[in-house]
Design a protein around this nucleic acid. Structure first.
Ligand code: MN
Ligand code: MN
Ligand code: ZN
Ligand code: ZN
Lengths: 145, 145
DNA sequence: TATATTTATGAGACTCAATCTCACAATAAA
DNA sequence: TTTATTGTGAGATTGAGTCTCATAAATATA
């Protein structure tokens, strides 16, 4: 998806929520989408400030909620009390291997697990909305140290 | 496992950590293990207080860390910023379906997923230490309302 | 364009789970 | 016991996240 199209889509989401188009909101979208990392709000806050963009922490937190609601971003909770966000624009679903030594996050996708997961939900008559599958351990780099 | 044996095992863990046997520590173990729920520290704190047992929040938090380290308990993070703990004594591994409407937690185990998970780790040369597989959605009770 | 109306922004106050502090209490080795 | 060591607990502190509200900016209207 090209950058202009993305902005249009975000503008549509804002319109649907009766929210105004502001430079801060677009800057936050741009910062997250142009990155392939799992970003913390504080990290995005400082990244924009360092680019000379006026923004507050509150605006970053508020905008992240919109990005998640409209599927531009996914929130990642790895149990350390800090929310991380990754772009969903042009990115397909995946789950995560998380290194407990260095914090590295490796992505994986397994279609068999995904479908087994769905059949578990069917068995329990449970409607799945989302899921997280996180494997914690030691990555190859950290093992060889 | 009988209650006396459990106390013995916990006492061994305490000895291994050079920690003393205190009434508070045993009370916290007992409170968690005799429950089949996913308990918050604050909840355990009040449960003990209501039983007339003198304990502080700090002691509950500190003791939970020991219980987790020695495999008497598992910590559960469902992304709401509150840690929950469940007994592992006599309980086999399982993962969770979590209802976003009512907060109910349903347990599941799928051996195929467990083994696929292990093969993913092999492929990435990643040493798994633990994993969490959480499926969020709407439970049967909440659907029929 | 000018003006009115509505909504957003941001600095800092606030919340709340969790952790830390430290004076005092309890434990256990000898 | 005695004594050294560790634990306890009330309250202070931390830190991610949320809230407040005066001001600024965006958009609707004339
Ligand atoms: Mn998945
Ligand atoms: Mn599992
Ligand atoms: Zn690593
Ligand atoms: Zn429910």
């Amino acid at each position: 998806m090209d950058k202009e199209q993305l902005k249009e889509n975000f503008a549509s989401a804002l319109k649907q929520e009766n929210l105004k188009r502001t430079p801060q909101r677009f800057a936050i979208l741009e910062e997250l989408v142009s990155s392939d990392e799992h970003r913390e709000c504080t990290d995005i806050y400082f990244a924009l400030r360092n680019q000379g963009i006026s923004v507050s922490r509150a605006t970053v937190y508020r905008t992240m909620d919109i990005l998640v609601k409209y599927d531009f971003a996914r929130r990642l909770d790895i149990g350390d009390g800090i929310a991380r966000y990754e772009s969903k624009v042009g990115i397909s679903h995946h789950d995560h291997l998380i290194c407990l030594e260095c914090g590295k996050i490796i992505e994986f996708l397994n279609r068999d697990i995904e479908s087994l997961q769905q059949s578990i939900c069917n068995d329990f008559d449970f409607d799945m909305i989302r899921h997280t599958h996180q494997i914690f351990g030691v990555c190859p780099d950290c093992k060889s140290k």
